[in-house]
C-alpha cells in the first residue's frame, strides 16, 4: 500500500468535497420543497393538477437521471428563447444544470414517498379531527402532516442517501465533484484500485453521517411508539 499516493489522492479528492456537498444540499432542499408542491397537487381535488402531478412523477421516476441531466444541460441550450432569456447566465453553468436536474428528479421520487406517507395516516384519526371541527389547512398542519411525515421518514432517508450518490452523475456534465476528480485521477495514473478506495471511503462516510442524522430524527419523532416509562408509584 503506497501511503503517499493514497494520502495525496485523498487530499485531491477532498478538495472536491465542497462541490459534492453543495450539489447535495441544494438539490435535496429544493427537491423537497418541490416535492411538497407536487404531492399537494397530486392529492388535491383538482383533476388537472392531479393529472399533471401524476405525469410528472411518472416521467421523473421512470427515466434515468442521466438522461434528465443531459436534457437540461445539452438540450435546453438548443432553444433560442432560453439562450436569449434572462436566466441564461444561470442556466449556462453546469453546476446550476446539475442542481436543477437533481432537484427535479428527487422531487418526483420524494413526492411519491410523501404520498405514501399521507395514505398511511389512519383515517380514524383524520375523522376524529374533522369531528372536532378541523378542516383545510389546520387539519393538514396539525394532524395529517405530522403523521404522514413519521410514516414517510424511513423511505425518505433512503431517498436522501440515493441523492448523495446521484451527485456523482454531475461529473458527466463537467461539474468537478468527487467522482469527476476521481475519474480524472484514474485515467492519469491508471491506479484504479487506490483511487476507488479513497473515493469510496469519502462517500461511505458521507452516507453514514446522513443515515445517522436521519436515524436521530426518526428517534426524536417516535417517542409515542416506544414502551411506557416505568410508572412512578402513585
Amino acid at each position: 500500500m503506497d501511503i503517499e499516493f493514497l494520502s495525496s489522492t485523498m487530499v485531491t479528492l477532498l478538495k472536491a468535497l465542497p462541490v459534492t456537498l453543495a450539489l447535495f444540499a441544494l438539490s435535496v432542499s429544493i427537491g423537497c420543497v418541490l416535492a411538497l408542491v407536487i404531492v399537494w397537487m397530486r392529492v388535491g381535488g383538482n383533476r388537472y393538477l392531479a393529472g399533471f402531478a401524476k405525469g410528472y412523477i411518472f416521467v421523473f421516476r421512470g427515466s434515468p437521471l442521466l438522461i434528465q441531466m443531459f436534457l437540461v444541460f445539452y438540450g435546453l441550450a438548443q432553444f433560442d428563447f432560453i439562450r436569449n432569456g434572462p436566466l441564461w447566465p444561470l442556466l449556462r453553468e453546469p453546476f446550476v444544470c446539475a442542481v436543477l436536474s437533481l432537484a427535479l428528479c428527487t422531487a418526483g421520487y420524494s413526492a411519491e414517498i410523501f404520498r405514501g406517507g399521507i395514505r398511511s395516516v389512519p383515517p380514524r384519526e383524520i375523522e376524529a379531527a374533522r369531528a372536532i371541527g378541523m378542516s383545510g389547512f389546520l387539519l393538514v398542519r396539525r394532524i395529517i402532516a405530522p403523521i404522514a411525515l413519521r410514516f414517510a421518514l424511513p423511505a425518505y432517508s433512503t431517498e436522501v442517501v440515493l441523492m448523495m450518490k446521484s451527485t456523482s452523475l454531475a461529473s458527466l456534465v463537467t461539474v468537478w465533484e468527487v467522482t469527476g476528480v476521481a475519474q480524472r485521477l484514474i485515467s492519469h495514473t491508471y491506479r484504479t484500485m487506490e483511487v476507488f478506495l479513497c473515493a469510496a471511503v469519502i462517500y461511505l462516510v458521507l452516507n453514514f453521517i446522513v443515515l445517522q442524522a436521519m436515524a436521530l430524527l426518526e428517534h426524536f419523532l417516535s417517542r409515542h411508539l416506544r414502551a411506557a416509562p416505568p410508572a412512578a408509584k402513585a
Binding site: 384519526e125 376524529a128 379531527a129 369531528a131 405530522p146 403523521i147
Partner: peptide
C-alpha cells in the same frame, strides 16, 4: 363525538 375505536391521535 366519541367513536367506537376511540380515534385518539397516536403521535
Amino acid at each position: 363525538m366519541v367513536f367506537q375505536s376511540f380515534n385518539l391521535w397516536s403521535h
